[in-house]
Each structure stands twice: as structure tokens, then as C-alpha cells.
Amino acid sequence: MSAQDGAAPSPSDMVTLVITTSPTPSMPSTDLISDILASFKLHCPVLLLCRVIVVFDTYDRIGEFMRLKKGQITAEGARAVELYKANVKDLILNEWYPKAEDISQVFVQGRGLAEYGSPKIVENQIELSTLQTNDRRVTFIEPTGRLGFGLAVRSALRMVETPYVWVQQHDWPLARGIPLSSLVEVMQTSEAEGSVPVKYICLPAIRMLSYATSAHVVPFPALRALTAELKRDFPTSQPDATVPLTPLFFWHDKPHVASTAHYLARVFPSRLAIARGDFIEDSIGQRARMQMKEGNWVKWACWLYCPGDSKEVCLQHRHGRRWKGVEAEMQTRALYAEMRSGRSSPLPEP
């Protein structure tokens, strides 16, 4: 239902939440995911009513040291991965099915493939196992080998049944209220009216503040012109409620809402689009920016949500590869405080 119909669409019917997670030093603790869910409750509770797909990315090999960026984990870490997956499944199921009678869902098991690179190389594919509740509200995807963020997102998108998707990395909790109903309404209205396209809306982190007047835009005449032409407050069906957006000249991996069909067509048109282990922004994002600088912004139709005149942060970053959990974080802070206190104390008298 569009703004013209007098009511905003229900995000729970229009949006699927995709959460990607991978091995971290904080496992088997679910602190990262718990933090994400807590931020949803506080800043965008309707997300917890949407369908959710959780992709558990994994490691390639076991070694003496943990090198997460290279897909290497220790034997102890490998055991923690299995515990972590079980803990996250319990966390998600208890959140999506808070009543004891609801959590006794029948699970449907499935299998799939994540293909990449040349189809002539048989090894260029990773087997996936899926577990889905019979009402399809909760889905878990587990690959047998490391996917990387890009292939993890594509694997989830192939199971999405809604027209829009919210993509969420495990270490980017929300920091302010997000009007998801209004964001979806703006995207849906743009499609219905054939006006300026809104296919992707990214949430701003601290380095994206004042984006419209930043070095990402100002030095490039074409991008300045597009910003001047398109930046606006989009109306919604809610009285006095508008959605401030500015054109974004990049495809970020940070939490974002996007058209499912657009995502598949633009980012993943074929198995050659992205390599195993790659992030979308490191490959597709750079290509998209080059095309936008050449004047082809409409092809990507990327926007940045910019509340508070582009001065309000919507996201925090937990640095998942380094973050060791709430308890470890508190211990580290206490140690630093003790060290600072020791340095500032007067020297004992001789």
C-alpha cells in the first residue's frame, strides 16, 4: 500500500531481515547478536516482526593462530563456532517465538549451493544447509566452507520472499530511531509513480555525516549536480512525517534497506559478480561509484538516510573481528582505568 492509499505498508509483510555473522573472538557468547536485537527493540521494534534469515559464515581451516580475515581459526575457536551457532539459534527462536507453545515449530531442512567464479571449475561452489520454521518466519543458513559477506548475502537473498530486504552485519547496532515503515513507503511510492528511483537506503555511521558536502561529493561536478537536484525530504502518508535522503555514490555493506529484485539484478547478476571471501563494497561498491561518477547514478539508485540535517548518527560499530564480548570489554576498561590511576598517583616518599 502506498502513500496514495492513505496508509503506509506494514514492514513485517514487506521486509525480510538478513543477519550475517561469522567467527569472532567473542564466541561462543552471543553478545554481538544480542546487542543488535536490543538496538532493534529500542530503535526499530518492527524489525522483530519481520521474517529473519541468519547466515552463519564459517572458517576454511584450523591453525595455530586465529586469522579471521584469512579464514583461519584455532581448534578451540572451531569448538566455539559450533556452540555459538547453537546459542544464536536459541536466541533468535526465543525472540521470534516468545511463547513456549510457538517455539515448538516444525523445522524444514534443505540444501543449496553458493556458486562463484567460472562454472568450468567444479570446486567453485560451496554446499549450504538450511533450516527453516514451517511458517518461514525464521531461516538459518550454514555453509560447509567460508563464503565471505558477499556470497552470504546472495545466499540469503535467494530465499527472500518479500520485495524489500534489510541487510544487517553482526557488529553494527542501531544508535537512533529508524522509521522503517516510512523508508519502505518512499521506496514503494517511487516504484509506483515511476519518479526518481529509490532502490537502496543506507544508514549513516559517524564517517558519513554531512555526506552531501563531503569530499566524497564536492570535488566531482557530476555528483554535486546530482546532489543539488535530488537531495530532498520525501513525503509520506503520515502527517508531518518526511524522509530526508541524499544521493549516495557508493554501495555500502553497512546496514541498509534495499529492493530485493534490484539487489539481485545489480549486485549479483551472475556467479562471476563477486569472488568468495569478498565484501560487496570492496568490489561492486567501487565499480558502482565509478559508474555514478560517469553519470550513471540511476542504474544504482543509492540513497543515504540523513536525519537531523545530516548530523545524526544511526549506527555504532563493535569491530567484530577484535571485540571479545561485554565481559572482556569491561575487564579491559577496568585495566586501563587502573593503569591511568597508577600513572596519575603521586610517587611514594623515599
Rank of each mutant, 00 (worst) to 15 (best):
F234M: 12
L304H: 14
T21V: 06
P346K: 02
E312R: 15
D278Q: 10
P346I: 05
E115C: 15
P204H: 05
A228D: 06
H262P: 01
G342E: 07
E193M: 08
A215P: 01
V186Q: 06
E312S: 07
S310T: 09
A288T: 08
T139I: 14
M292C: 08
L131D: 02
F56Q: 06
E229H: 05
A215E: 05
S129M: 12
A225M: 06
L226F: 00
G63L: 12
W303G: 04
L180A: 03
N134T: 07
G320W: 14
D253L: 02
L128V: 03
L315I: 09
S214T: 02
A241G: 03
Y59C: 02
K199M: 05
S26K: 02
S195Q: 13
E338H: 08
A86D: 05
M339C: 03
G150I: 05
G342K: 12
A75I: 00
Q331F: 15
I126R: 07
Q132S: 08
K120S: 11
W297N: 05
D102Q: 14
Y116V: 10
C306M: 11
S104P: 03
F250C: 08
I19M: 12
M208G: 07
D31A: 15
C50Y: 05
I53F: 05
L93Y: 03
S182N: 04
V218C: 00
R136K: 11
D282M: 07
W251V: 15
